[in-house]
Amino acid sequence: MRNSVLSRLREMLLRKEAELASRDSELQGLRRSEALLREERDSLRSTNVALEHEIAVLHRLKATEQRLRTERDTVRVDYSKLQKEVAALRVKNAEQVDVEKQLRNDLAVSRGANSVLRDRVVSLRRLLATSEAAADQMRREKTTLEEQVANMRRWTEEDAATTAHLRRENTTMANDLATLRRQKQEDAATISSLRRDSERLAEFVERERLWRQARSDLEQLHREWQERIRMEEEAARKREEQRRRETTAFNRLSGQWDALRQSSTQTQGATLTPQQQYETVWSQRLCPSSKLTFDTFPWPVAPGAHIINPAAVETFLLDGVDASRRKQAIRSQLLRWHPDKFTARGILDHVASSDWERVLQRQKEVVLCLTTLLARV
């Protein structure tokens, strides 16, 4: 039984240790998850920095677009001026038809100038077309950048939501860590309780050992008692004669028990001690003139004591007895108070029938006290 209880306790301790190990591993996993979340948060921060850089580039592109628009407007103004100049030249050519011959040289020069102007107009037109294409490209880039900015804003919002979620998860993890700490404290309290249970179990085992020793002593006494019974059965005729003698002694010593009681209560200078009175009454085989009651029965305790316990019995029976003789004295008392012996000798015949049950109950208590004392000696 002890080994099974100890094995169960060991199994419980092993299970608790396994649970603690699993919880420690879960705690390590949570810590690793926290580290990964921190790394992800750092990466999100770096992404936000990159997005801010792209937004700055977009602002610079907007400034460049504005500058190109200004140049395009300037080119358009120059082109309109050139058109006005061409119109003026045409008017002059119409007015100077009459003097065309005189001004051929000037016309040739003007034609050269016109060709130069035409080349300049063509180049300006080409530049205008290029600027318009660049403006269209910038518009497309602007649209793309606006879409990217919208995406970046959406990503920023998602990152903020993710950050809030991570914060909530961190809070949950902190709560889980606190719960794990509380569970660890509870497990420590459980382990200490198991240790106390182990100590109580050891104490119980020690008590069981003492009880078994007392039981073996009681069995030894029982065997001795059976041996005595056998010897008494062999000497039946002698016991019959002894009974006749006891009857004669009963008739002769009638009233002696009452006299002893009266002398113990009324006479201060009594010659017999309570122990001597106790032994005298038992040696006379309980022969008072009247029936004994529960209160007047010779119990192995001091007169007036209402409680039977090992300490009171030890004080009454073993006071002044040598240590080497105590065990024998307790055994002789056990033979006297043994249930079978107690009944076989007809002790209850000298007790009032109304107190038989109480006397038998007290007799069992006396046997238990004597057994306890025998285990101590």
Rank of each mutant, 00 (worst) to 15 (best):
residue 4 S to L: 07
residue 6 L to Y: 05
residue 12 M to K: 12
residue 13 L to C: 09
residue 17 E to C: 04
residue 18 A to S: 10
residue 21 A to N: 14
residue 23 R to T: 06
residue 28 Q to I: 11
residue 38 R to L: 09
residue 46 S to T: 04
residue 47 T to M: 09
residue 48 N to M: 10
residue 52 E to R: 07
residue 53 H to A: 10
residue 54 E to N: 00
residue 60 R to N: 07
residue 61 L to E: 09
residue 62 K to H: 05
residue 64 T to Q: 15
residue 66 Q to E: 13
residue 66 Q to I: 04
residue 68 L to V: 04
residue 72 R to E: 11
residue 72 R to I: 06
residue 72 R to Q: 12
residue 79 Y to C: 05
residue 79 Y to T: 10
residue 79 Y to K: 03
residue 82 L to Y: 03
residue 87 A to L: 10
residue 96 Q to N: 14
residue 103 L to K: 09
residue 105 N to A: 10
residue 106 D to S: 11
residue 107 L to V: 12
residue 112 G to I: 00
residue 112 G to K: 02
residue 113 A to Q: 13
residue 114 N to G: 08
residue 114 N to F: 13
residue 122 V to L: 11
residue 125 R to H: 06
residue 139 R to E: 14
residue 142 K to V: 07
residue 144 T to C: 01
residue 153 R to L: 01
residue 155 W to L: 14
residue 155 W to A: 15
residue 163 T to Y: 06
residue 168 R to H: 10
residue 168 R to M: 02
residue 171 T to S: 14
residue 171 T to H: 07
residue 175 N to G: 05
residue 175 N to W: 10
residue 178 A to N: 12
residue 180 L to P: 06
residue 182 R to N: 13
residue 184 K to Q: 13
residue 185 Q to H: 11
residue 187 D to G: 08
residue 190 T to P: 01
residue 191 I to Y: 06
residue 197 D to T: 12
residue 199 E to V: 09
residue 201 L to S: 03
residue 209 R to Q: 04
residue 211 W to T: 07
residue 212 R to H: 06
residue 213 Q to M: 06
residue 215 R to P: 05
residue 216 S to W: 09
residue 218 L to G: 02
residue 219 E to M: 09
residue 222 H to G: 12
residue 224 E to L: 05
residue 225 W to Q: 03
residue 229 I to F: 13
residue 231 M to C: 03
residue 231 M to Q: 15
residue 233 E to Q: 11
residue 235 A to Q: 11
residue 235 A to T: 10
residue 240 E to G: 05
residue 244 R to F: 07
residue 249 A to P: 00
residue 250 F to V: 03
residue 252 R to P: 05
residue 253 L to I: 03
residue 257 W to H: 06
residue 263 S to M: 07
residue 264 S to E: 06
residue 269 G to Q: 06
residue 270 A to H: 04
residue 271 T to E: 15
residue 272 L to V: 09
residue 276 Q to D: 07
residue 277 Q to R: 11
residue 278 Y to E: 08
residue 282 W to Y: 01
residue 304 G to D: 01
residue 305 A to W: 00
residue 305 A to H: 04
residue 314 E to W: 01
residue 319 D to T: 14
residue 320 G to P: 00
residue 321 V to F: 01
residue 321 V to G: 00
residue 325 R to F: 04
residue 327 K to N: 12
residue 327 K to E: 13
residue 337 W to L: 03
residue 338 H to D: 12
residue 339 P to A: 00
residue 340 D to R: 15
residue 342 F to H: 03
residue 347 I to A: 09
residue 347 I to M: 04
residue 362 R to Y: 01
residue 367 V to S: 00
residue 374 L to C: 08
residue 377 V to F: 07
